[in-house]
Design a protein around this nucleic acid. Sequence first.
DNA 1: AATTGTGAATTCCTTCACAGCC
DNA 2: GGCTGTGAAGGAATTCACAATT
Lengths: 236, 236
Amino acid sequence: MKTEKVSELTTNRLSVYLRCLNDLAAAGAETISSHALAEQFNLNSAQIRKDLAYFGEFGIRGVGYYVEELRQHLLKILGLTEKRRVAIVGVGNLGTALANYPGFNRDSFEIVALFDNDPAKTGIRTRSGLAIQSTEKLCDVIKHENIEIAMIAVPASAAEKVLEEITEAGVKAVLNFAPIHLNPKPGVKVKTVDLTTSLESLSYFLVNPNSQGADGVNLDYREFLSQETGANGAGD
Amino acid sequence: MKTEKVSELTTNRLSVYLRCLNDLAAAGAETISSHALAEQFNLNSAQIRKDLAYFGEFGIRGVGYYVEELRQHLLKILGLTEKRRVAIVGVGNLGTALANYPGFNRDSFEIVALFDNDPAKTGIRTRSGLAIQSTEKLCDVIKHENIEIAMIAVPASAAEKVLEEITEAGVKAVLNFAPIHLNPKPGVKVKTVDLTTSLESLSYFLVNPNSQGADGVNLDYREFLSQETGANGAGD
DNA sequence: AATTGTGAATTCCTTCACAGCC
DNA sequence: GGCTGTGAAGGAATTCACAATT
């Protein structure tokens, strides 16, 4: 087990591998090779082995990986064996959709608080029975409820303020849906999902179809999740 | 103007620059330097100049870039000067949120069709007055309405089928919200926004706070948008 | 024989540093 | 003096290729 820094590209992939292993386990598969796993995602098999090698030696030469065992390792690595408490700030259409989104692993993430600054909304319950609270209570509730993760689903103009407040309250991990660059304090991780940028970047590829890769072969080129601007340092 | 391949990281950044230029233009700024722009995003100024240099020489030495002029160039480069017609497939919570999302540039993207396979939903209108149609009509409507972009907001199990159908109908650009890897046909661009992976990857950084970058300095390391697994080729 | 784990090679991306221009 | 555009350098991520292992 090494202690090099692990890039976000790697952690994203680990999550994808995990999803696949869940399916394989459900289907009753005993083992899987890096090659077979790689095929599922148009990835190189060495990539998968390298990703896993950051954390240990989980495979068996000549055999591959035991599905259930590797699944457990990934759960552990990604910190999904403990349930984390999540708040959503901004309960408009997007916030509501996130609150009801069935895709989050509910064993690992429990949404326990919703906040909105619109007084007309406070007290209203979502489908799950959770009541919307005033943003005035943000700090208090986050502390009392031991909330570790926040999703920001407010307009861009309000996002910075929200980040400050939840940081103040001790939140260390933020999934930001506001289309704005946020500058978190040290020790706070912000991951932005920018729908505007995703769509506009797609538009580019409509105008330049050939820029996708090459000649008929779909290279599946860098299609997925989670890089902001690639910013690597503090500018010049 | 070069004709090298432009990476998706670059197009994502162009979209971010554009958003900033919109704000600058609204605030009445005449010019902006790459350095000043870079500061907004914790980016290196050379990065910005390089990104722009793929498409032309837009700046003036000693001065910087004319805000409005550069804005127009970016609109053109990203293909945002023409209005593109968009369909949303899957009108659950997420699809509804997307249909009503105020952050999309409505001058460039017009949502003109909503599809859902639940008969109980067909005919229902969203806030904007758009009626939900049966997925049976997917292909016909996409062709007749000249739809160029589709957003997939159906469960993972249905996403592959939807991709096939919209590809059949001629859609070349897809924003996929289903948590699954899709294998598009050549010439079709799929960009996946994987909420599950975003959240699980955040979880990793909660367990490994130091892996974020270094000692107190927030490096803003690779925080943003839009890489799948980094897949670069067709495996081995 | 099959498959892992990994050093070396490669490819891609970012940053430096400075000539050229305003 | 200030800023762009860019070749060269540096760094990061991916892929190759093979020794090691079952």
